[in-house]
Design a protein around this nucleic acid. Structure first.
Lengths: 139, 139
DNA sequence: GTAACTGCAAAATATTTGCATCCTT
DNA sequence: AAGGATGCAAATATTTTGCAGTTAC
């Protein structure tokens, strides 16, 4: 269930490069979601902005990470569960955005409810985005 | 329950201007959500880009419209229900994004389920974003 | 008349593309 | 060695800000 950084890259037929190793590592370490800017800051000046854009895009295409819909419309990414394969995301889990500290949590253990859609509508993905105050900021 | 364009603006202590009337009218007419670009196109060259940005921002602040979190992280807006007041959105309803035609529907009659959050987490808003194929594109 | 709103210009920010060079396999 | 990945430059897109002129009330 738990793959190492390098195994994950190999599994997805990606060549092992410094930027991919480092960026993927950031995601594994980060408990929450990361925005492009987070990665840029946390990796120092090590990589070019463009490389980060391209790496993120590659990871999304390979199903390693996925974008999170947020109510403030900032682009954030988080690791996918292993069920995600290329071109097919199955991330029907719950995301929580803290209004105070801005951290985005992936609440993997909570499942999204089935929604009864109107006649003729077919659902391929369900995202539940909850915002509020997280445990850390609740004081 | 149903306010006219002008009544809505007055109710929110906004002066009645051409751009506000026109943009609010677009939202009332549109059954779904609108992006900045939609408004720009549908209003012709009548208004400046900047005016549209500022008008949308004002409407969001006043609780007339709200932003919709979308899985492709494009910024979209939709009319709020009357329960929304300044600074306090209560739009816990379901949005549906069609992957084919791109239309965003507000499924007002479907309520979002209560989510059991981890200890210490408090929720102020819940957004359920479903994507898939809508009835029109299902053929 | 006054405060608020708009349009224009420009700045700031975010994202994409082309191409030469370098690295992984 | 070959194909892919990166860095740099630059093009494009998006959003914000300042300010002067205009409009609503």
């Amino acid at each position: 269930m738990m793959y190492s950084i390098i195994e994950t890259l190999k599994k997805n037929q990606l060549s092992i490069t410094d930027s991919r190793k480092k960026i993927l590592e950031l995601f594994v370490k980060a408990k929450g979601a990361l925005a492009h800017a987070d990665i840029e800051h946390q990796s120092g000046t090590e990589f070019d902005r463009v490389t980060i854009y391209r790496t993120l895009q590659t990871f999304v295409e390979k199903g390693i990470i996925h974008t999170i819909p947020t109510s403030d419309n900032s682009v954030r990414y988080a690791l996918c569960k292993d069920a995600c394969t290329e071109g097919h995301h199955h991330d029907n889990h719950v995301h929580f955005m803290c209004d105070v500290c801005g951290t985005t949590y992936c609440l993997d253990n909570i499942t999204t409810p089935d929604v009864k859609l109107p006649e003729g509508f077919r659902s391929t993905q369900t995202d539940l985005v909850v915002s509020g105050v997280c445990a850390k900021c609740a004081n």
